[in-house]
Write a protein that binds this DNA or RNA. Structure first.
Lengths: 349, 349
DNA sequence: CGGCGGAACGTAAACGTTTTCATCAAAACT
DNA sequence: AGTTTTGATGAAAACGTTTACGTTCCGCCG
């Protein structure tokens, strides 16, 4: 109880063997008699011995830990993402070191740097990363997987969701449902996802409704900004028949603006978001959206990372992968519902 | 670039000084001339030197990392909790190592053990911990803060939310609103929070409505179980006037059961939950609940932990603290709304 | 002018592992 | 029976730091 802490030496002494044998037994390396094994295990248990990870990783150069660098932990998106990563990591016996809340480039750089020697690989999701940033801050031999990043560099594979296709599909869906004009609420200017989604909106409009007007109002992914955007849209001379917000939170903001104004959804105006956050199911009317299976994104990133770690930086497939997005039509778009999962949220596993 | 990785020796050679001086400069220990400092810094920058954390913590015994052991990362509760912890940790220059998804005692024990030498302290939230568990698995000198735990041991300070008082307050609130009979939906059997909340319900009923019937149906904190509980309650001979679910997800489940049956909330039956998760604001009618400020819980835990780490295990105040819970009355309880924060979610900071 | 104190710096030990290599005994060949 | 092979074991080096302790040099005081 009050004993300092048992080291491998103590175990060796207690078991009357050398430290080498203790190491062999505890790491299951073989080349040890059953009796010695037994003695070592007993001694280790008696002393409550647990190997010191610092010493271990100093010599092996491995930490069995991967780092996740995220801009924030707030909201369902990051929560789900980190959950996906954690689950996959844990299944592989890897620990997860998280680092979040970066206000600027320097902050992000510091976060990445201090991970040196602490992790075997990193998953980075940050608007601040680009090729130069990575060269500067990431040790040459450290595997990195990028999330939602425009960086196109074989050394830093990226996993993106198919924002463009998803947005296009949703716009087409709204048009097909008979809503002739579709307005768009953008995300924050610097955000990659937001830009891609806007691209998808423009592409779909150009293709499927070339003569309809293009209505675009600015938002920043917050509910508040969605609410303002909603009011702004209602105030316009000719209201759009449908509104497509670049994410769900803004769509919810719109919804409240519409409710407040007595505008019925979807009868008077249809509404759709992007992300399929949990809330989307629970608002009234339930929100049509584009689903990305965020946890899967995290999982895929981790899988790719481990592949990278084992392959020593060499990768088989292409260095950037894309995750499918699906339209899930609920009540708010005024079309027959499709793709809606069971009413209740996914199981824990 | 393609260089292996710079060690302190390389920097020393490059700057033409000893490794001791490099260490002194980089750690700001003084006893070094300005010129030497300059030379060292320049050399370090030139080589992109970053000290190896494994080596450092091996010798210093500190990792500047704290571990968070949680049962899961799913759902808003844990998400908010970890966010609170992370924010506070980051403000103190500490890293955060998370470990979740423990299926049983052994799993949890393994999680705690493998953190040895990886963290300077731990925050544990798990139904599996008790005094014996901790003695067994936590190194004697490692500071630990417990969350939501019945353990009452000076060596393991705990932070709990005031479940009993919160539940009592909510029941009283429902009774005061004129709902003569209040039913309760329990959480999972082993869960500490759930037990405390039930205690609060019983206490309040005994005190404020001694002759009203006690209706209790079992749930397990999932929406699904809440849905079933809701149906069960409707099927009873005499329906209760109000339902108090041990958490918000179950309340939402009830809500859907009631909607499905055409029972109006709150006119036909009032409803309340516990936790104040984000969804509570967005369902229709908005859900009355008991708010716990989860992020604050995490923050408090981290603060207590650092206090413990600096004080070398000695603590000033009492070894268990309690966080206030507040009734927030929204639409579902059929009383004037109180305590409802701004319509939009809290700011990011 | 000689000794002394202190600042600047270097040498080397220590931290707790893993792993290479040598050692040794016993088992397996010739 | 002598020699080789095999398998178990131990001694010691290495990992990259921090830090206690020496050493050197200089200026100062007696």
């Amino acid at each position: 109880m009050t004993t300092k802490k048992a080291t491998i030496k103590d175990v060796a002494r207690e078991a009357k063997v050398s430290i080498a044998s203790v190491s062999r037994v505890l790491n299951g390396l073989g080349g040890v008699t059953a009796e010695t094994q037994d003695a070592v295990r007993k001694a280790a248990a008696r002393l409550h011995y647990v190997p010191d990870n610092a010493a271990r990783s100093l010599i092996t150069g491995r930490t069995h830990t991967i780092g996740a660098v995220l801009p924030d932990l707030y909201g369902e998106f990051f929560s789900e993402l980190i959950r996906g990563i954690d689950l996959a990591a844990r299944a592989r016996g890897l620990h997860l070191l998280v680092s979040s809340s970066h206000d600027g480039v320097d902050d992000a750089a510091a976060a990445v740097r201090t991970m040196r020697g602490r992790v075997d690989g990193m998953i980075i999701l940050s608007e601040f990363v680009d090729g130069a940033f990575l060269e500067q801050n990431v040790p040459a031999d450290l595997p990195v997987v990028l999330l939602d990043s425009p960086v196109d560099n074989p050394r830093y594979p990226a996993i993106n969701m198919d924002n463009i296709a998803g947005a296009q599909a949703m716009v087409k869906h709204l048009l097909d449902a008979g809503h002739g004009s579709v307005a768009f609420v953008t995300g924050p200017a610097g955000n990659y996802d937001a830009q891609e989604r806007e691209k998808g909106y423009r592409a779909a409009m150009a293709r499927f409704a070339p003569k309809a007007p293009l209505t675009i109002v600015a938002g920043d992914f917050t509910e508040e900004s969605g609410y303002r955007a909603g009011r702004e849209l209602l105030a316009q001379a000719t209201r759009p028949r449908a509104v497509f917000a670049a994410n769900d939170m803004m769509a919810v903001g719109c919804l409240y603006a519409f409710k407040e104004a007595g505008v019925r959804v979807p009868q008077d105006i249809a509404l759709a978001g992007f992300d399929d956050i949990l809330i989307a199911r629970y608002v009234t009317p339930s929100l049509s959206t584009v689903s990305v299976n965020i946890a899967d994104l995290g999982k895929s990133a981790l899988l790719l990372l481990t592949e990278l770690m084992e392959g020593k930086g060499r990768l088989d497939g292409p260095h950037t992968r894309t995750l499918r997005c699906d339209v899930v039509a609920r009540e708010s778009c005024g079309a027959p519902q499709t793709n809606v999962a069971t009413k209740h949220p996914p199981a824990l596993v």
